[in-house]
Amino acid sequence: MNPHMVLRVVSKLLIPIIIVFGLYVHFHGDYSPGGGFQAGVLVAVGVMLYALIYGVEEARRAVPPWTVRAGAALGVLVFAGVGVASWILGGNYLEYEVLHPDTAYKAGQHLGIILVEIGVLLTVFSVILAIFYAFAGRAPDIPDEEW
């Protein structure tokens, strides 16, 4: 029997909850504490927990390094792209009001904040995971007797 049976079962239950909580922290960031930074960290922690229990190679199969590399750049592009979009729509750089015609409910502001926070989430998640892969890919996995 695998010596980490309890860890494996518990982490399998916990990882989806951690990731959903991370996304909640992101999309509820307008109303409660949190936002893209914290959400990115939480989602990355979910993947890192997976790597810790099942090994880095398994995690690399679940979230391949190329997605992490692309995600880091994509996040910055999304953030900067929202600025360019508001430019094209006739506003100043990162002036969110022009993104949505409904000015009574500040829909443009809500939309802009959620979009730039998605950029933050992508970059933070990817960079943390990239640093983790860079370190953990070089370190040997912890041998069983040291747990």
Binding site: Y31, S32, P33, G35, Q109, I113, E117
Partner: peptide, 10 residues
Amino acid sequence: DIGVPNVVTA
């Protein structure tokens, strides 16, 4: 200005 309850996020 923003219409968002969380001032930190705003």
